[in-house]
Design a protein around this nucleic acid. Structure first.
Lengths: 335, 335
DNA sequence: TTGAAAGCGCTAACAC
DNA sequence: GTGTTAGCGCTTTCAA
């Protein structure tokens, strides 16, 4: 059986509240009893029930994290950053994978709150879910959710800028007829990256054809299929910007299988800079997101809000925008 | 403020236990009040405090998961399987990343129990930690921990067999002078894979040189460094078996950078079959583990034990061994 | 310094 | 059908 403070109080002929004081290093117990209690607790294999403790303190020292997918190394790295930083601050993490499913995400948003997390982080699959975040009972930090009227804080890489520098690089390389493989049509990250991309083309008096935008899931298969489709329908495409590296891998897969050489025959640029992108066999040019930092920053922001909340300090949603960085490798180098 | 059953009881001039009954669809309330309660609860934004509920029921419908690393796609896939299966059974998951740190793992083993998980899954970094698992207060399922006297259940791919089929394949291909890049020296998975590998060599009257075993971390860098070292010290090596695919990627990286062609100049075979292994640019021959199934099976096993535990059914630790599968690609094909 | 008692939000046994 | 009460394991206030 699990041993409780009552068990150890009984054994020592003490009141359980004295045991509690001793165990928590609170004043009001003699050094003698404290030591005795500590020793007996250890001997009996006592483990405090933090659940019960949380009922009293109304905090659980637990954060919720809701992400779409953990196989994508981008989220793997962000999650690692989140868990590390949370742990450093003595928080644990509830991880929920929405699997890009809107309704599952909604379930999770409710679930973490029922589990009394002190706050949570969400990479929302759908902007429409952010209403739920505004009405959350605890602080929330979003990743890549940024609508002007959102009441919760958010962190994001500057996607417009990211798209811009991707396009700028392609243009500098001499590419003129780019296509974009986007994520889902309503993904705000995707929208902003595209916006920045187009902006660069316009600034250089180049035009980019709407028919060369296509949309898919953020996975290898989508990249593969859309590359095939684009290249079949538009013989003039000289470069492809994919909305993330995983999709770019799908593109590279298609190209390799069809004897098209990326960097020579066609330019390819991704987004994220996942680990695999630097493999010599891949050498994918991409726009880097500071993945690990994103996780760390989100947790710090969240913990701040949790503290402010506890101290009744007025809440203002914060928006943190991180710098993207161009990583030039071998899949772009026409000139 | 968070609304509780008392709040809604007060509003409705009901006793809070009636509200509880209504909310939980328990008998003992008129259909009329039930509906009224439901409606008011929804209107007031009531969210049950599952923490408090858990105090009473002594269950939390939460599983702990302790793994070393989430960036490695192997664990990503296993974790996805775990979370999916847990969710299907209405359980949530506490994810802990030990980062290959023995002491951090110990902390987590205690932490999840303090959080009153109903059971937990561990991929232990060190066999010495399994003592803690035997004395856990709740059911435990291990991944790749299998000592004869362990009291907890475990799931593993048949690593001996996996090593064996890897060696057999190399031999069939005509390779005769293999090296092994192992994981950490005390990793039981590593030990077993090596054992099976050596066994195949012996059965074929081939001998394999101890000096060609080297040990490292399960990451790309280790694979890279050890490949360099092995190939510098042993000019005669014709093939390398790495203990996981991530290390194999490091080997491939080294080979590519040094103009050595895997599959032609040297054979490379990995373990796990992570997604990236099938990329046409990589085409890594490997031994597949049924990653997703591993997650699913571990959860099912754990839930079984949780149920048995609740019903006081005698506990016998179970050991489930899954079949590895050879996936032949382009990094081995001497002949 | 220690004990007694209340209460965190909830469920469940028992009265009425 | 509804209210009362006790109690899950713990912290905290108030008495002694």
């Amino acid at each position: 059986m699990k041993v409780t403070i009552k068990d150890i109080a009984q054994k020592l002929n003490l009141n359980f509240s004295s045991v509690s004081r001793a165990l928590n290093n609170k004043p009001g117990v003699s050094e003698e009893t404290r030591k005795l209690v500590m020793k007996t607790a250890a001997k009996m294999g006592y483990r405090p029930n933090v659940i019960a403790r949380g009922l009293v303190s109304r905090t659980t020292r637990t954060l919720g994290v809701i992400i779409p997918d953990i196989i994508n190394p981008l989220f793997g790295a962000i999650t690692t950053g989140i868990i590390e930083t949370a742990n450093q601050n003595d928080y644990d993490v509830f991880l929920c994978i929405s699997n890009w499913d809107r309704n599952k995400e909604i379930d999770y948003i409710n679930a973490v709150q029922q589990k009394q997390v002190d706050g949570f982080i969400v990479k929302s699959v759908s902007d429409s879910n952010t209403i739920l975040l505004d009405t959350a009972h605890v602080p929330v930090v979003g990743y890549e959710s940024w609508a002007a009227n959102n009441q919760f804080s958010s962190v994001s890489t500057d996607n417009i800028k990211g798209g811009y520098i991707a396009a700028k690089h392609l243009i500098d390389c001499g590419y003129r007829r780019s296509a974009i493989i986007n994520g889902p049509e309503n993904s705000s990250a995707s929208i902003n990256r595209r916006k920045g991309f187009i902006q660069a083309f316009i600034e250089h008096n180049l035009k980019i054809d709407d028919s060369k935008f296509c949309f898919g899931e953020y996975d290898i298969e989508s990249g593969y299929i859309l590359a095939e489709q684009l290249l079949r329908e538009h013989k003039d495409i000289d470069s492809i910007f994919t909305n993330n590296d995983v999709m770019a891998l799908g593109v590279l897969k298609y190209l390799e299988e069809n004897g098209i050489s990326p960097g020579k025959d066609i330019g390819v640029i991704g987004f994220d800079n996942i680990g695999i992108a630097s493999m010599p066999q891949i050498q994918l040019t991409t726009v880097k997101q500071p993945k690990h930092s994103i996780g760390r920053i989100m947790v710090n922001l969240l913990l701040d809000e949790i503290k402010n909340n506890a101290e009744n300090i007025q809440h203002y949603p914060q928006r943190i925008l991180l710098e993207p960085e161009l990583i030039i490798r071998k899949t772009t180098c026409k000139k």
